[in-house]
């Protein structure tokens, strides 16, 4: 895959979209995507490729459409009649809006972690087992194994193994967020969407989440929406800067932060505009 696969018009519009994934292929192919809420455009003609098994960050000021884009990737917008869409999103080459696509299965494959931790009012164990049970796993031993594996993957096992049957709502905010990650990992997604996963957390919890994100990319593709430029710089491999519903610049994180092509990008990341 190379920049050559972009259409001429797109390359012209943002020459900075010259993103090459030398060691991996693309996971999501977003092509000329436009989204509107009640007729008001939120995303305009956006084209972007997200690399597999890397961390890609979407940054930009509030209202730039980065969360809208993220929620488009697992079709959460389907719940809202007011959203209209144009363009295509392909996951591993398959159009996610295709007729034969099972939305539930798509959402299992594309897990999502939200801004505020949203554990269910159940035990820690049941939270993690929730999605697994939906997949039809009933055997206790199998469930136990998956729950332990997921909690370990989310670096929460050591803290909660003593009482898995405590209510999830007794955990701290940071622990709850890791529980939500564990819950998502338990259904073995291919992609993990993270919508400002640390914005409601204290610095230490944030650090733990960031470590986790870096550790997880060997298993799956991660897409991170964040307000926090340092966080994007710390954890992501690629960064896309969005502004007013448009993709302004998309580049390897190092390049984008050290040597942005466009003035708007530079202004934003240096804090002159926001």
């Amino acid at each position: 895959m190379s920049a050559a696969s972009f259409s001429a018009a797109e390359t012209q519009r943002f020459s900075s979209a010259v993103v090459d994934f030398p060691s991996t292929s693309s996971c999501f192919d977003i092509e000329a995507l436009s989204l509107a809420y009640e007729g008001k455009p939120a995303l305009r003609d956006l084209t972007l490729r997200v690399p597999r098994h890397r961390v890609t960050a979407f940054i930009g000021p509030s209202g730039c459409g980065k969360s809208t884009l993220l929620r488009g990737l697992n079709r959460l917008h389907d719940l809202n009649d007011q959203v209209t869409r144009n363009g295509h999103i392909r996951l591993e080459g398959q159009d996610i809006h295709g007729r034969d696509v099972d939305v539930a299965e798509l959402r299992r494959r594309v897990g999502m972690v939200f801004q505020t931790p949203n554990p269910f009012p159940m035990s820690i164990y049941e939270n993690v087992a929730y999605g697994v049970r939906l997949q039809g796993v009933k055997r206790k031993r199998e469930l136990d194994e998956i729950v332990e594996w997921a909690l370990q993957s989310a670096a929460l096992w050591e803290e909660v193994k003593a009482d898995l049957h405590a209510s999830a709502w007794t955990l701290s905010g940071g622990q709850q967020q890791r529980l939500v990650i564990a819950r998502t990992l338990a259904v073995r997604p291919d992609v993990l969407l993270l919508d400002e996963p640390a914005s409601a957390l204290d610095p230490i919890s944030t650090l733990k989440i960031e470590e986790l994100i870096r550790g997880l990319k060997s298993q799956l593709t991660l897409i991170l929406v964040t307000h926090n430029m340092q966080q994007a710089a710390r954890v992501s491999d690629y960064t896309a800067f969005l502004h007013a519903g448009e993709l302004v610049e998309y580049a390897p994180t190092d390049t984008l932060f050290t040597n942005p092509r466009l003035r708007r990008t530079e202004d934003y990341i240096t804090g002159r505009v926001g």
Partner: peptide, 27 residues
Amino acid sequence: VPVALREGSLALGATRFETLRRVVVPM
């Protein structure tokens, strides 16, 4: 019932009915 919990359930691959039965109605 918070929208966040419904979305959390849907994001795990639950259908709307499963979300209703397992999260929304119990709450």
